[in-house]
Design a protein around this nucleic acid. Structure first.
Length: 288
DNA sequence: GAACCGTGGCG
DNA sequence: TCGCCAAGGTT
């Protein structure tokens, strides 16, 4: 067993946050929905939306029976609304391919819309207790620091899964805890900006700390400015349509005051191309 | 592999 | 104020 596993397991048992999707019996569907919502959206903002979502659509078949636009509207301001559409498509696929039961097999999960390496393994591990490496941005940062002595991880790579596999204990239940613990440690202690090494169970074996916290060359690309961007225009258009749903909106009135008409039209076109918006005659609406 | 895709909180 | 960051995935 890796030297990381025992202290991670002990620390997690004492310090894990009490999050809804960690409660016994939360269910594979709830965990799947939570993982979709947690893709790039902070935990605190997800929790109330998750509970509302599951109250409305308690299983995959329920969501699959709804209109995709209902999912987009219910998604509200969680961001990246394509995820709502993908989650709806995944629900339809679960209904049609798996009799409404969220699959357990990683390849079957990977074949669902909006599910990649992280989400597929997270569901298999946290919903079903199977043994796979689960690697998110927190885990990558923890491993980069502890094992490589780097302040920040490199870009995501398949190699990350191999590295995490090398950290996991053989026992499935222990492996699941180590996966969760690495994520939890990165989220609450080994954070990106101001790590609290005094509270870290891996401090004594951390290479980054041993080497004096060297700054690593920062290869991360800067996030593009949001104000005035195409994403901003898309967000504004969709926000209006969410507010009007289930009614439609006159296309000419839609975002009439947006400063750049070319950009506004490009936003609408791209939303239509993504399936997030429908235009019928001279009116726009969320998809039915 | 790079570019693109929302939204809000925090230092 | 402003840049960084957040349980990623698709094209």
């Amino acid at each position: 067993m890796s030297a990381l596993a025992p202290p991670l397991i002990a620390w997690y048992r004492e310090n894990a946050r009490d999050l809804p999707w960690r409660r016994d019996g939360f269910g594979a569907w709830g965990i799947l929905v939570s993982e979709f919502m947690l893709q790039q959206t902070p935990v605190a903002r997800v929790i109330p939306h998750l509970e509302a979502w599951l109250s409305r659509w308690p299983d995959a078949a329920a969501l699959a029976a709804a209109a995709p636009g209902d999912a987009v509207a219910q998604w509200a301001n969680l961001g990246y609304p394509r995820r709502a559409l993908w989650l709806h498509r995944a629900a339809v696929q679960v209904r049609d391919r798996h009799d409404g039961v969220v699959p357990r097999d990683v390849d079957a999960l990977l074949a669902l819309s909006g599910i990649g390496d992280y989400t597929a393994r997270a569901v298999a591990v946290f919903a079903y207790g199977d043994r796979h490496p689960v690697v998110d941005t927190n885990t990558r940062r923890v491993l980069a620091r502890v094992l490589e002595g780097r302040a920040q991880p490199g870009p995501p790579a398949k190699e990350d899964l191999v590295r995490m596999e090398g950290v996991l204990p053989e026992d499935r239940a222990d492996a699941a805890i180590v996966n969760a613990a690495a994520m939890e440690l990165g989220a609450t202690v080994c954070t990106a900006r101001s790590p609290r090494c005094d509270a870290c169970p891996l401090a004594e074996i951390c290479r980054w700390r041993a080497e004096g916290f060297p700054a690593s060359p920062d290869l991360r690309r800067r996030q593009a400015r949001y104000e005035g961007s195409d994403r901003h225009a898309r967000g504004a258009v969709l926000g209006i349509l969410r507010g009007a749903a289930p009614d439609d909106v006159d296309l000419a009135a839609l975002l009439a005051e947006w400063p750049d008409a070319r950009q506004r039209d490009r936003a609408i076109d791209s939303l239509v191309a993504d399936g997030l918006v429908e235009v019928v005659a001279d009116r726009a609406r969320l998809p039915r």
